[in-house]
Design a binder for these strands. Structure first.
Length: 310
DNA sequence: CTAGGATCCTGTCAGC
DNA sequence: TGCTGACAGGATCCTA
């Protein structure tokens, strides 16, 4: 589920937690679900993280031994870092049989970081959705993934750009002009515009939320054939994509801070900025019409039938 | 080549 | 209370 702003927020957070002595060396990797880790996890042991990068929705951990990890969260992936002191506090609570709690959460928040798919139960790790645990000297990184669509893959750093997924990625909206997008749309004239902007080889980073929000901004009906989008409108799409993702980044994307309140319940950061996503049945803030939900290209799609033109 | 549907998985929710 | 089907912030594979 995480889209570009969420992944970028995770990149920044883990960059603070893991780089060099903050995480230390990898002591071991526990692969609890085989399909969630591609390659030989033993290669990673003894290495430390030198740099966190991102390409589209993929996170890249560069390691000190010229290897890298590519992590894609897909629909339900989460990455959660627990500094060792926090982990040990949790273990103590479990062993004493007391209810897991964050009575000292204010304090502990400085020792954890996490983001990705919003779920409760992030106080209890590892849990049954934990697929991979990377044990660092100074803490633990949990990769949780309910649906097992996501993965971590180990490969040489100089092969990252040649990776099947990475090599197909288009530019992100900030690096692309409307004219460039317009030209690309001409190769998919018959497909609905929403499906085309979700294609990571056309423009990288948009997912189901920001695709809907972008189309709302550009006042284009998600079902409109891509061939009927003008060059000027393509410019609006690029502008809108930058704007909605910038806004989400500013709000911190989907981190634990935003998703999980101190009592462990789920927050809803979407309320902060969504104009159409999950607002079906509510009034369009631009024209007052009712926002509708339908299906386009197999994906739930939210739009205003009045101000988004066919 | 494109377009569209099925598929990978687990969990939740609405409706009987 | 079960059961059933639909659906989920992604991407790929298969078919026409």
């Amino acid at each position: 589920m995480p889209e570009l702003p969420e992944v970028e927020t995770i990149r920044r957070g883990l960059n603070d937690c893991l780089i060099k002595e903050k995480g230390g060396k990898v002591l071991s990797i526990e692969v609890l679900e085989k399909k969630s880790f591609i390659g030989d996890s033993a290669i990673v042991v003894d290495a430390s993280v030198t740099q966190m990068r991102r390409r589209g929705k993929a996170l890249i951990f560069d390691l000190s031994n010229d290897m890298s990890l590519i992590c894609h969260l897909r629909m339900t992936g989460q990455l959660v870092w627990w500094e060792m002191s926090y982990y040990e506090e949790r273990v103590r609570q479990k062993e004493s049989g007391s209810t897991l709690n964050d009575s000292n959460y204010k304090n502990m928040l400085d020792h954890t970081f996490g983001g990705g798919h919003p779920t409760d139960a992030l106080l209890d790790l590892p849990n049954k959705q934990t697929r991979v645990i990377i044990n660092f000297e100074r803490g633990k990184l949990f990769f949780n993934d309910q649906r097992k669509f996501g993965f971590i893959k180990v490969l040489p750093t100089d092969k990252v750009e040649k990776d099947a997924f990475i090599s197909k990625l288009a530019k992100e909206p900030w690096d692309m002009t409307g004219e460039e997008l317009y030209r690309k749309l001409q190769h998919h004239k018959g497909a609905p515009i929403k499906s085309v902007i979700l294609d990571q080889s056309i423009v990288a980073g948009l997912g189901n939320i920001y695709a809907d929000e972008t189309l709302y901004y550009a006042k284009i009906n998600p079902r409109r054939k891509a061939g009927l989008v003008s060059e000027k409108e393509a410019g609006k799409l690029i502008e809108g994509a930058r704007l909605v993702m910038d806004k989400s980044l500013e709000a911190g994307g989907s981190t634990i801070r935003n998703y999980v309140k101190s009592d462990g319940t789920k927050g809803d950061y979407l309320e902060l900025f969504a104009e159409v996503f999950n607002r079906q049945g509510q009034k369009c803030r631009r024209c007052g019409n009712i926002i509708e939900k339908t299906k386009v290209g197999g994906r739930g799609t939210h739009y205003c039938p009045r101000c988004q033109k066919d």
